[in-house]
């Protein structure tokens, strides 16, 4: 479905990606892991078109989308839940969701989509007329995911959805992500919480300083790479909370 080939991207003189290639098939859930600065967000930015890649190709459903504008990639069916949630704080929950539906708006199905979001995230119904900025961190994350889903994406990309959330809320978000996957959404997940992410994904890519270090199933990854050492140089805790 999505195929990234030999992608190079840079910020001014600093090259952030040195030839990254990855692939996601329809219906898959794939994790993109790596430490801070490894190039995960840069990869997402290049896919969405926020950043113009220096070199390489990105094809989505057989169509070249490198150098497309962000507004056209979302119309094509790629939706991003940005890092730090980035909800519109001064807009109400309702308005946030309405903008989420902007790319592929159809009056007839808007109401049913909204109802679906209320089922997935009942809290959003309660907060419908409140300003997004007044929501708690977890609620904002739900709003950000709901907003991304409102465009009916074929591919949903989540950039560190558990960042800054309590463990209980993190569990809830991860359950939700695997729920979305089970409903058939293709998902690319960028996560700091590698252990947790590996529990729910089909495959994973490991990025280090702008190039791919490893790709394969979670089991292979766990076997071949000491994840704790990749991130922190060792952590003996059972539930290795890794930080970036």
């Amino acid at each position: 479905m999505l195929k990234v080939q030999d992608l190079y991207a840079s910020y001014g003189a600093i090259t952030a990606l040195h030839g990254v290639s990855l692939e996601i098939a329809e219906g898959e859930i794939v994790a993109l892991l790596g430490v801070n600065g490894a190039g995960k967000s840069t990869t997402l930015k290049s896919i969405t078109g926020v950043l113009r890649p220096v070199k390489g190709s990105i094809t989505f459903l057989g169509e070249e989308i490198a150098n497309r504008s962000p507004e056209s990639t979302v119309k094509k069916g790629i939706s991003l839940v940005p890092e730090g949630r980035d909800i519109f704080g001064s807009l109400t929950v309702e308005e946030n969701l309405r903008l989420g539906a902007y790319a592929n708006y159809e009056r007839a199905r808007y109401k049913t989509d909204l109802e679906e979001m209320f089922q997935l995230f009942p809290i959003l119904k309660e907060r419908f007329h409140q300003a997004g900025g007044l929501l708690s961190g977890g609620e904002q994350q739900m709003l950000a995911i709901a907003r991304a889903l409102m465009s009916r994406p074929k591919l949903l990309m989540l950039d560190e959805p558990s960042l800054g959330l309590s463990p209980a809320m993190t569990d809830q978000i991860f359950d939700l992500i695997s729920g979305l996957h089970q409903r058939g959404t293709t998902i690319l997940l960028v996560e700091q919480n590698a252990e947790r992410a590996l529990e729910i994904v089909d495959r994973a890519y490991l990025l280090a300083t702008g190039s791919l270090e490893f790709s394969g199933t979670p089991d292979e990854l766990k076997r071949k790479v000491d994840i704790a050492s990749v991130y922190l140089g060792g952590d003996d805790n059972d539930h290795c909370e890794v930080h970036l």
Binding site: T48, S69, E71, V74, L91, E95, R98, Y102
Partner: peptide
């Protein structure tokens, strides 16, 4: 109006607004 909401959103977070599909 949607355009008005998009304008307010863009004043708040421009890039994120584009990610919603709103043309800059």
């Amino acid at each position: 109006t949607v355009l008005g909401i998009a304008m307010r959103a863009a004043a708040d977070k421009f890039t994120t607004t584009r990610l919603m599909g709103v043309p800059a």
